[in-house]
Design a protein around this nucleic acid. Sequence first.
RNA 1: GCCGCGGUGGUGGAAUCGGUAGACACGAAGGACUUAAAAUCCUUUGGCCAGAGAUGGCUGUGCGGGUUCAAGUCCCGCCCGCGGUACCA
Length: 919
Amino acid sequence: MDYNFKEIEQQWQAEWEKAHVYQVSNKSDKKPFYVLDMFPYPSGAGLHVGHPLGYIASDIYARYKRLQGFNVLHPMGFDSYGLPAEQYAIQTGQHPEVTTMKNIARYIEQLKKIGFCYDWDREVKTCDPDFYKWTQWAFIQMFNSYYDTAQQKARPISELIHKWEQDDPTWATLTEQQQQERLMKFRIAYLSDTKVNWCPQLGTVLANDEVSEGLSVRGGFPVEQRVMRQWSIRVSAYAGRLLEGLKKLDWTESLKETQRNWIGRSEGAEMQFSIKGQDAPFTIFTTRADTVFGVTFMVLAPESEYVKRVVKPEQQDEVDAYLDRCKHRTERERIADRKVTGVFTGSYAINPLTHTEIPIYISDYVLSGYGTGAIMAVPAHDSRDYAFAKHFNLPIIPLIEGADVSEQSFDAKEGKMINSGFLNGLEVPDAIAKMKEYITNTGIGRVKVNYRLRDAIFSRQRYWGEPFPVYYKDGMPYTIDEKDLPLMLPEVSDFKPTSDGRPPLGNAKDWTYNGYPLELNTMPGFAGSSAYYLRYMDNHNANALVDKDVNAYWRQVNLYIGGTEHATGHLIYSRFWNKFLYDLGYICEDEPFQKLINQGMIQGRSNFVYRYIGEGATGNLYISYNLIDNPEYKDKVQPIHVNVNIVHNDILDIAAFRNWLPEYKNAQFVYSDGTTDNDNPYLGTPAEKQYICGWAVEKMSKSMYNVVNPDDIVEQYGADTLRLYEMFLGPLEMSKPWDTKGIDGVHRFMRKLWNMYEDISDEEPTREEYKALHKLIKKITWDIENFSFNTSIPAFMIAQNELSALRCNKRAILRQLAILMAPYAPHIAEAMWHRCGETTFVVDAQWCECDETYLTEDTVKYPVQFNGKVRFTVELPKTMGKEDIEQTVMSHEDTAKYLNGAAPKKVIVVPGRIVNIVV
RNA sequence: GCCGCGGUGGUGGAAUCGGUAGACACGAAGGACUUAAAAUCCUUUGGCCAGAGAUGGCUGUGCGGGUUCAAGUCCCGCCCGCGGUACCA
């Protein structure tokens, strides 16, 4: 009986579907367990073999937990709003929904082939009105809430209004519009004029995490700074809690560190500096309060509100020219070109400690978005201030003993203070503390914690996204009534912006609410992905995002698996969104994802042929990789990507290559042995001739012809082999290239495993057979609980080998082996299970318990070492105690030989392992 | 620059608590079966040395030190690679 994986997989996938085996109920006496994958964006290219890596891992874990008796929620859905479908729509006129749905169908087809245990009844799509209704609903809650800094949580904005009505007599005197404007400064979702990342090519603004080094993450287009009226989400209010919350999460240290850096907490002080000739002071933020005695100038960000106040008429032209220049510089230019620039304002500030007058400058090395957008410059101890001071010839006063500041600044926070009045002689940390105390007591400043985390810009000038549930009356935004949700995305005549530059929704007919114009922006990608894990719990609920009782049952995601690229985007926004809903009492857990594992990326492994481009080249001759360093070919060949699917173990399939593209139709080769086609003119290409390809690890992409499609692997080897092989490739978290060679080994194992189920006997297994089984149970259980899936495959192979060697065909062993295989290779496991005569599904079985009594040996081999070197081995009863072992070994004749009459210095016995004798 | 992760045979990688490094697989070499090939099975496979052989010796986890009876694993100092982040005051 051959291992017909195709038949087995098709049969059992159909049976599972028919019996709704993977449907999960919200009502169960079992303990809940929630295993989640980061849902994919369904791209047009479909899945490649890298995508399922994390899904396989989570599937193994989900199946294992189910076998352990948990009620396991393991859903899948699609992050289906996004730029690619819209770009495609603009180019082709095809509605993004059509492309998106087509891509989703393709993804589902591919995923189903791999045999995941998803409950497809719980599928969610972010572009589905039933889903985005709740994205819009959450936005309304954010609009109608503020962050109460005293309670450190979000509260309904009605509470704030109530407070003002009680305590603030001016509130009642304000017009409706003034009141709305004031409230807007407190709402968690708010509208404001902010400096945004504007990407002209994409025609939209982007959030900070969507921009990297001045280029858009998607597409790599330049991004510039622009002030626009935009919706923002007050994520920054949660900075402290987002940081604190990390402590109790079971995430990798590196991911937590990435989030800590992104949140960027820094302890320092805010200080007031008065301006010469003005009453109102201005405020700066510093972490180096100890260096106030060395402040020799002040710098404002070009966008700072203070600029208007301090510019003297005689400097106005120069300042305007500078500001104009800054405005037109793109973010990318600013980063690329770090030349010192700046302009003097004409005003002077007063150093509150030395009372000296110090000039105020404007420079773009100070950022408006951080701190107060103004700094005190201490050139001796800050490299940026130092560069500025050198350029403008400003004084540099060293404040730390022994610091040589003639060539560069001394930035380290260590040493003894000098030139610093009452701080002289103190160590830097003590000086910082003392100065903080001083400024607090004298009232010139206060201790302040600053965060780098900014509010998230929430508007996108795009079509394919959630419409805001917002309309405008007298220029002020109002949210629509919740009973009118969802606000459906309208049809538009054109997916491009309108001719007068409004977003694409401007092309919609009748885009109004009760006669008032509706918001034209749509929400960003992260809106829909921020709470999708909650919706899976209760995805058919028409009355709530998630029913409270249902949420109280599932609580939170116990295991979340996904890529590390979401560290500063999705994983921050989701945590924020979750905390917000928690504050308002809609859900019962403060954090969404208890344990998180980042699967590594699977890179492509590209193959190359080497075209001869030396003397007499016809452009049609290809040199085998092993020869390209020969003098006759060195530097005369050009590597060309070749489709990895026509290369096997780096050997080119010549016929397939000639058929691949027209240009290779008449390709000629110099084979690995140095011969050419001309040497065998009448024979064609003899079978023993090999053309060896070179290779490189690169990103998996179409243009490098290194994309391997899981469908092809499933077709050729089966889903179970694919699953096992992906795990076998290496540790889950590690990035590694996909290399199909090696899959044969796993496939061979599957065949051998299957052959064990030929004739099954009801004889009682031997102790040896039980031992092999229980060793495996112990190992597999440990592996799954520790996410060490890669080491399970060898364990299976070894067990299979041992059992085969024992010619084991005992039902008692084989049915347990099927259970152990079930998480990894569910189809073959199901077939194995039924071959053992079982009639239920293997997923409904009980996970195997390891019986340690089978693992204990009667005797143990002890290697006896002298000074670390193994000299001989003794075999002793397992039950023997440490001292008896020592005694036995010491009286051994070989021991006497090695000791040569001398007394040992030390004897170390590691029970069950080793005896070490130091001479 | 700063932060994080990593470096083990020809290759992917094991070694889970400091305890016989190289499991398992690929590749390679040799052999069996076969008219032949494929498939399958068996043997060998870190390096060096000795031996007809069983076997034995030395060396060996990026580099240099250290702790220990014992180090891939712990400590100190470097080198290299990958990832994140960057005028954040």
